[in-house]
Design a protein around this nucleic acid. Structure first.
Lengths: 136, 136
DNA sequence: CAATATGTATCTATGTTGAATACATTAAGT
DNA sequence: ACTTAATGTATTCAACATAGATACATATTG
Protein backbone atom coordinates (compact mmCIF):
# COMPACT_ATOMS: atom_id res chain seq x y z
CA UNK A 1 0.00 0.00 0.00
CA UNK A 2 1.15 3.47 -0.75
CA UNK A 3 1.51 6.23 1.80
CA UNK A 4 -1.13 8.83 1.03
CA UNK A 5 -0.72 10.99 4.10
CA UNK A 6 0.95 13.82 2.27
CA UNK A 7 -1.41 14.09 -0.70
CA UNK A 8 -4.42 13.67 1.57
CA UNK A 9 -3.03 16.37 3.85
CA UNK A 10 -2.58 18.75 0.96
CA UNK A 11 -6.18 18.07 0.06
CA UNK A 12 -7.28 18.77 3.64
CA UNK A 13 -5.31 21.99 3.79
CA UNK A 14 -6.66 23.13 0.45
CA UNK A 15 -10.20 22.46 1.64
CA UNK A 16 -9.59 24.51 4.76
CA UNK A 17 -7.97 27.29 2.74
CA UNK A 18 -10.91 27.32 0.36
CA UNK A 19 -13.45 27.71 3.16
CA UNK A 20 -11.41 30.07 5.23
CA UNK A 21 -12.12 31.45 7.73
CA UNK A 22 -15.11 29.17 8.25
CA UNK A 23 -14.83 25.95 10.19
CA UNK A 24 -14.94 22.67 8.30
CA UNK A 25 -15.72 19.34 9.95
CA UNK A 26 -13.62 16.21 9.56
CA UNK A 27 -16.78 14.60 8.22
CA UNK A 28 -17.02 17.09 5.36
CA UNK A 29 -13.34 16.67 4.57
CA UNK A 30 -13.71 12.89 4.61
CA UNK A 31 -16.53 13.09 2.07
CA UNK A 32 -14.56 15.38 -0.22
CA UNK A 33 -11.52 13.13 -0.05
CA UNK A 34 -13.55 9.92 -0.07
CA UNK A 35 -11.93 8.60 3.03
CA UNK A 36 -13.04 8.20 6.64
CA UNK A 37 -13.13 10.83 9.39
CA UNK A 38 -10.84 8.72 11.53
CA UNK A 39 -8.00 9.03 9.06
CA UNK A 40 -8.62 12.74 8.69
CA UNK A 41 -8.47 13.29 12.42
CA UNK A 42 -5.24 11.37 12.76
CA UNK A 43 -3.67 13.67 10.19
CA UNK A 44 -5.19 16.71 11.87
CA UNK A 45 -3.35 15.78 15.06
CA UNK A 46 -0.05 16.09 13.20
CA UNK A 47 -1.06 19.21 11.33
CA UNK A 48 -2.18 20.86 14.57
CA UNK A 49 1.02 19.91 16.33
CA UNK A 50 2.91 21.60 13.51
CA UNK A 51 0.87 24.76 14.06
CA UNK A 52 -0.80 24.60 10.67
CA UNK A 53 -4.36 23.86 11.74
CA UNK A 54 -6.59 24.94 14.59
CA UNK A 55 -9.45 22.89 15.89
CA UNK A 56 -12.55 23.92 17.77
CA UNK A 57 -14.22 21.25 19.82
CA UNK A 58 -17.82 20.79 20.73
CA UNK A 59 -21.00 21.43 18.84
CA UNK A 60 -20.57 23.64 15.78
CA UNK A 61 -16.85 23.05 16.14
CA UNK A 62 -14.53 22.11 13.31
CA UNK A 63 -11.20 22.83 11.72
CA UNK A 64 -9.53 25.82 10.13
CA UNK A 65 -6.12 26.99 9.05
CA UNK A 66 -3.92 28.46 11.74
CA UNK A 67 -2.13 30.73 9.26
CA UNK A 68 -2.59 32.56 6.03
CA UNK A 69 -2.34 30.22 3.01
CA UNK A 70 0.52 32.26 1.59
CA UNK A 71 2.52 31.51 4.74
CA UNK A 72 2.03 27.75 4.52
CA UNK A 73 4.37 25.89 2.21
CA UNK A 74 4.04 22.30 1.10
CA UNK A 75 7.24 21.24 2.81
CA UNK A 76 5.69 22.25 6.12
CA UNK A 77 2.77 19.97 5.39
CA UNK A 78 5.08 17.20 4.30
CA UNK A 79 7.21 17.40 7.41
CA UNK A 80 4.14 17.54 9.63
CA UNK A 81 2.68 14.24 8.45
CA UNK A 82 5.58 12.19 7.13
CA UNK A 83 8.50 10.96 9.17
CA UNK A 84 10.03 8.36 6.87
CA UNK A 85 12.34 9.31 4.04
CA UNK A 86 11.43 9.06 0.37
CA UNK A 87 14.25 6.65 -0.32
CA UNK A 88 14.73 3.70 2.01
CA UNK A 89 17.98 3.61 3.92
CA UNK A 90 19.62 0.35 4.97
CA UNK A 91 18.59 -0.88 8.39
CA UNK A 92 20.49 -4.14 8.51
CA UNK A 93 23.96 -4.22 9.97
CA UNK A 94 26.55 -4.56 7.21
CA UNK A 95 28.34 -7.81 6.48
CA UNK A 96 31.63 -7.19 8.27
CA UNK A 97 33.47 -9.56 5.96
CA UNK A 98 32.67 -7.42 2.96
CA UNK A 99 34.25 -4.04 2.31
CA UNK A 100 31.49 -3.06 -0.08
CA UNK A 101 28.75 -3.95 2.36
CA UNK A 102 30.53 -1.90 5.04
CA UNK A 103 30.85 1.10 2.80
CA UNK A 104 27.40 1.10 1.22
CA UNK A 105 25.52 2.27 4.29
CA UNK A 106 27.05 5.72 4.37
CA UNK A 107 26.86 6.16 0.63
CA UNK A 108 23.18 5.21 0.46
CA UNK A 109 22.32 7.40 3.42
CA UNK A 110 24.04 10.32 1.74
CA UNK A 111 22.06 9.76 -1.44
CA UNK A 112 18.84 9.44 0.54
CA UNK A 113 19.56 12.64 2.45
CA UNK A 114 20.26 14.52 -0.75
CA UNK A 115 16.99 13.39 -2.30
CA UNK A 116 15.09 14.28 0.83
CA UNK A 117 16.64 17.71 1.16
CA UNK A 118 16.21 18.49 -2.50
CA UNK A 119 12.58 17.43 -2.50
CA UNK A 120 11.74 19.48 0.56
CA UNK A 121 13.44 22.48 -0.98
CA UNK A 122 11.27 22.01 -4.01
CA UNK A 123 8.09 21.69 -1.95
CA UNK A 124 9.06 24.81 -0.04
CA UNK A 125 8.71 26.82 -3.23
CA UNK A 126 5.00 26.13 -3.37
CA UNK A 127 2.60 27.72 -0.94
CA UNK A 128 -0.95 26.71 -0.17
CA UNK A 129 -2.02 29.94 -1.82
CA UNK A 130 -0.34 28.78 -5.03
CA UNK A 131 -2.31 25.55 -4.86
CA UNK A 132 -5.54 27.42 -4.26
CA UNK A 133 -4.87 29.78 -7.15
CA UNK A 134 -4.14 26.83 -9.39
CA UNK A 135 -7.45 25.27 -8.40
CA UNK A 136 -9.51 28.22 -9.52
CA UNK B 1 7.49 -2.64 4.79
CA UNK B 2 9.77 -0.30 2.94
CA UNK B 3 10.77 -0.61 -0.69
CA UNK B 4 14.48 -1.44 -0.78
CA UNK B 5 14.81 -2.33 -4.43
CA UNK B 6 16.70 0.77 -5.39
CA UNK B 7 19.27 0.77 -2.56
CA UNK B 8 19.76 -2.98 -2.91
CA UNK B 9 20.22 -2.55 -6.66
CA UNK B 10 22.84 0.13 -6.13
CA UNK B 11 24.60 -2.29 -3.83
CA UNK B 12 24.42 -5.03 -6.45
CA UNK B 13 25.75 -2.76 -9.15
CA UNK B 14 28.55 -1.53 -6.94
CA UNK B 15 29.50 -5.11 -6.17
CA UNK B 16 29.61 -5.93 -9.87
CA UNK B 17 31.60 -2.78 -10.63
CA UNK B 18 34.08 -3.62 -7.91
CA UNK B 19 34.71 -7.11 -9.27
CA UNK B 20 34.65 -6.16 -12.89
CA UNK B 21 35.17 -7.78 -15.27
CA UNK B 22 34.88 -10.99 -13.26
CA UNK B 23 31.57 -12.74 -12.85
CA UNK B 24 29.83 -12.61 -9.49
CA UNK B 25 27.13 -15.05 -8.43
CA UNK B 26 23.77 -14.04 -7.02
CA UNK B 27 24.75 -16.11 -3.98
CA UNK B 28 27.80 -13.94 -3.31
CA UNK B 29 25.78 -10.77 -3.75
CA UNK B 30 23.11 -12.08 -1.42
CA UNK B 31 25.72 -12.69 1.28
CA UNK B 32 27.22 -9.24 0.90
CA UNK B 33 23.79 -7.60 1.06
CA UNK B 34 22.47 -10.00 3.70
CA UNK B 35 19.46 -10.91 1.66
CA UNK B 36 18.45 -13.99 -0.31
CA UNK B 37 19.48 -14.99 -3.84
CA UNK B 38 15.86 -15.06 -4.93
CA UNK B 39 15.44 -11.34 -4.31
CA UNK B 40 18.75 -10.63 -6.05
CA UNK B 41 17.71 -12.56 -9.11
CA UNK B 42 14.38 -10.80 -9.30
CA UNK B 43 16.21 -7.49 -9.39
CA UNK B 44 18.72 -8.82 -11.90
CA UNK B 45 15.88 -9.54 -14.29
CA UNK B 46 15.01 -5.83 -14.29
CA UNK B 47 18.60 -4.68 -14.44
CA UNK B 48 19.28 -7.00 -17.37
CA UNK B 49 16.18 -5.84 -19.21
CA UNK B 50 17.48 -2.30 -18.84
CA UNK B 51 20.78 -3.32 -20.40
CA UNK B 52 22.79 -2.66 -17.27
CA UNK B 53 23.75 -6.20 -16.36
CA UNK B 54 24.75 -9.29 -18.28
CA UNK B 55 24.26 -12.78 -17.00
CA UNK B 56 26.04 -15.99 -17.92
CA UNK B 57 24.10 -19.15 -17.24
CA UNK B 58 25.37 -22.59 -16.38
CA UNK B 59 28.28 -23.76 -14.35
CA UNK B 60 30.86 -21.07 -13.62
CA UNK B 61 28.27 -18.56 -14.75
CA UNK B 62 27.36 -15.39 -12.93
CA UNK B 63 26.69 -11.70 -13.35
CA UNK B 64 28.65 -8.70 -14.55
CA UNK B 65 28.06 -5.15 -15.65
CA UNK B 66 27.02 -4.65 -19.25
CA UNK B 67 28.67 -1.22 -19.43
CA UNK B 68 31.50 0.79 -18.03
CA UNK B 69 30.67 2.13 -14.54
CA UNK B 70 31.22 5.68 -15.73
CA UNK B 71 28.42 5.19 -18.24
CA UNK B 72 25.90 3.95 -15.69
CA UNK B 73 24.06 6.58 -13.71
CA UNK B 74 21.91 6.04 -10.66
CA UNK B 75 18.76 7.20 -12.39
CA UNK B 76 19.16 4.35 -14.86
CA UNK B 77 19.28 1.93 -11.95
CA UNK B 78 16.31 3.60 -10.32
CA UNK B 79 14.19 3.46 -13.44
CA UNK B 80 15.15 -0.16 -14.04
CA UNK B 81 13.86 -1.46 -10.73
CA UNK B 82 11.21 1.00 -9.57
CA UNK B 83 7.99 1.69 -11.34
CA UNK B 84 6.01 3.53 -8.68
CA UNK B 85 6.51 7.21 -8.03
CA UNK B 86 8.13 8.60 -4.90
CA UNK B 87 5.00 10.51 -3.99
CA UNK B 88 1.67 8.72 -4.09
CA UNK B 89 -0.83 10.01 -6.60
CA UNK B 90 -4.58 9.78 -6.05
CA UNK B 91 -6.14 6.62 -7.43
CA UNK B 92 -9.71 7.11 -6.29
CA UNK B 93 -12.16 8.85 -8.55
CA UNK B 94 -12.87 12.37 -7.29
CA UNK B 95 -16.05 13.30 -5.49
CA UNK B 96 -17.99 14.89 -8.32
CA UNK B 97 -20.00 17.02 -5.94
CA UNK B 98 -16.88 18.79 -4.75
CA UNK B 99 -14.90 21.26 -6.81
CA UNK B 100 -11.83 20.86 -4.67
CA UNK B 101 -11.88 17.09 -4.93
CA UNK B 102 -12.22 17.38 -8.70
CA UNK B 103 -9.32 19.78 -8.97
CA UNK B 104 -6.91 18.11 -6.58
CA UNK B 105 -6.07 15.16 -8.80
CA UNK B 106 -4.29 17.20 -11.44
CA UNK B 107 -2.54 19.38 -8.92
CA UNK B 108 -1.22 16.45 -6.91
CA UNK B 109 -0.12 14.63 -10.04
CA UNK B 110 1.78 17.70 -11.16
CA UNK B 111 3.54 17.93 -7.82
CA UNK B 112 4.34 14.24 -7.89
CA UNK B 113 5.72 14.49 -11.41
CA UNK B 114 7.90 17.43 -10.46
CA UNK B 115 9.36 15.56 -7.51
CA UNK B 116 9.94 12.50 -9.64
CA UNK B 117 11.62 14.40 -12.44
CA UNK B 118 13.74 16.43 -10.09
CA UNK B 119 14.90 13.38 -8.17
CA UNK B 120 15.80 11.48 -11.32
CA UNK B 121 17.74 14.49 -12.56
CA UNK B 122 19.63 14.49 -9.33
CA UNK B 123 20.36 10.77 -9.52
CA UNK B 124 21.53 11.20 -13.10
CA UNK B 125 24.39 13.34 -11.85
CA UNK B 126 25.91 10.42 -10.05
CA UNK B 127 27.57 7.58 -11.92
CA UNK B 128 28.42 4.16 -10.63
CA UNK B 129 32.05 5.16 -10.97
CA UNK B 130 31.44 8.02 -8.54
CA UNK B 131 29.95 5.56 -6.06
CA UNK B 132 32.91 3.23 -6.48
CA UNK B 133 35.40 6.07 -6.02
CA UNK B 134 33.55 7.18 -2.91
CA UNK B 135 33.79 3.67 -1.54
CA UNK B 136 37.57 3.51 -1.75
C1' DC C 1 26.64 -36.84 -17.11
C1' DA C 2 27.46 -34.49 -12.80
C1' DA C 3 27.88 -30.08 -10.90
C1' DT C 4 26.61 -25.38 -10.64
C1' DA C 5 24.92 -21.36 -12.16
C1' DT C 6 20.71 -18.46 -13.71
C1' DG C 7 15.53 -18.19 -14.77
C1' DT C 8 10.99 -18.61 -13.11
C1' DA C 9 7.09 -19.56 -10.34
C1' DT C 10 4.74 -19.99 -6.11
C1' DC C 11 3.86 -19.60 -1.40
C1' DT C 12 4.50 -17.49 3.10
C1' DA C 13 5.76 -14.19 6.90
C1' DT C 14 5.92 -9.64 8.05
C1' DG C 15 4.91 -4.95 8.24
C1' DT C 16 2.33 -0.81 6.87
C1' DT C 17 -1.60 1.61 5.65
C1' DG C 18 -5.98 3.13 6.02
C1' DA C 19 -10.90 1.59 7.20
C1' DA C 20 -13.98 0.70 10.87
C1' DT C 21 -15.61 1.17 15.32
C1' DA C 22 -16.26 2.73 19.86
C1' DC C 23 -16.22 5.94 23.27
C1' DA C 24 -14.51 9.92 26.11
C1' DT C 25 -14.38 14.89 26.03
C1' DT C 26 -15.87 19.35 24.94
C1' DA C 27 -19.00 23.05 23.88
C1' DA C 28 -23.25 25.05 21.77
C1' DG C 29 -28.03 25.69 21.90
C1' DT C 30 -32.57 24.94 23.52
C1' DA D 1 -29.70 20.58 32.90
C1' DC D 2 -29.85 18.03 28.82
C1' DT D 3 -29.42 16.98 24.03
C1' DT D 4 -26.71 17.37 20.14
C1' DA D 5 -22.67 17.49 17.48
C1' DA D 6 -18.13 18.16 17.05
C1' DT D 7 -13.02 16.73 18.11
C1' DG D 8 -9.64 13.54 20.59
C1' DT D 9 -8.03 8.98 21.31
C1' DA D 10 -7.60 4.09 21.29
C1' DT D 11 -8.14 -0.31 19.34
C1' DT D 12 -9.07 -3.70 16.03
C1' DC D 13 -9.40 -5.31 11.27
C1' DA D 14 -8.77 -5.94 6.20
C1' DA D 15 -6.05 -5.25 2.32
C1' DC D 16 -1.84 -4.91 0.26
C1' DA D 17 3.16 -4.75 -0.71
C1' DT D 18 7.63 -6.39 0.21
C1' DA D 19 10.99 -9.57 0.72
C1' DG D 20 12.08 -14.29 2.43
C1' DA D 21 11.82 -19.22 1.37
C1' DT D 22 11.49 -22.99 -1.53
C1' DA D 23 11.28 -25.74 -5.51
C1' DC D 24 12.41 -26.83 -9.90
C1' DA D 25 13.34 -26.01 -14.92
C1' DT D 26 17.07 -24.59 -17.91
C1' DA D 27 21.64 -23.90 -19.44
C1' DT D 28 26.56 -24.61 -19.60
C1' DT D 29 31.00 -26.10 -18.01
C1' DG D 30 34.22 -29.67 -17.31
Amino acid sequence: MVDTRFPVSVHIMTGLAYNRPNLVSSEQLAISIKTNPSFIRKLIVSLSAAGLVESVRGKSGGLRLAKNPKDITLDQIYKAVTESSLMAVPTKAPNKNCAISCGMGDILCKISDEIQENTLKQLAKRSLKDVLDQLK
